[in-house]
């Protein structure tokens, strides 16, 4: 038992502490920067087109998928949290990252295709093969959809 803790559990948690933390910080910085850059790109989740332009390409469906895994530190902390109850902040954060990343990708794809607005954005969670049922390896998987179109606004 003590061997398991020293040689397996501790290194895994340290791995999460060192690599997981930096990956997460870098990712959050990247998301902040992407969201700053898209000022002027209109994102809504209403079903109708706000201020559509009369020219430009026809509106089109845009889809993005993201799957983000937990690290062992997060999984370990979540395990403790489950004993006492309360918010699992580490897991809240990976869900947040997955959802923000999905929307960032929607905007990137729309911009690349020559659109400047997205409406009817929907973000759904996905369970890949029931992995979230057994609480061994938490992962945040989501699929985001939206309709890209051209708006007059800001043009």
């Amino acid at each position: 038992m003590i061997h398991f803790i020293v040689f397996v559990l501790v290194p895994l948690v340290l791995f999460g502490l060192m690599i997981g933390r930096t990956t997460e910080k870098r990712h959050l910085r990247y998301l902040d920067q992407q969201e700053q850059e898209r000022q002027g790109f209109l994102v809504t989740q209403v079903k109708s087109f706000a201020d559509p332009a009369s020219d430009g390409p026809p509106p089109t469906l845009i889809v993005a998928e993201v799957v983000i895994g937990s690290d062992h530190l997060k999984t370990f902390l979540a395990g403790w949290r489950a004993l006492f109850g309360g918010e699992m902040k580490a897991l809240t954060r990976i869900m947040e990252r997955a959802k923000r990343e999905a929307i960032v990708r929607l905007v990137q794809q729309s911009t690349a295709a020559g659109y400047n607005a997205l409406c009817n954005v929907r973000v759904d969670s996905v369970d890949i093969g029931g992995v979230n049922a057994g609480r061994k390896k938490p992962m945040a998987a989501c699929i985001a959809t939206g309709t890209a179109y051209r708006t007059r606004r800001g043009a």
């Binding site: 983000i68 895994g69 937990s70 990976i94 990343e101 890949i128």
Partner: peptide, 17 residues
């Protein structure tokens, strides 16, 4: 599952979707 040691995007599953 290896990527699950350190966290980050699981590209294989993103591709699958």
């Amino acid at each position: 599952s290896l990527k699950n040691l350190v966290g980050g995007e699981l590209k294989g599953y993103t591709e699958l979707l």
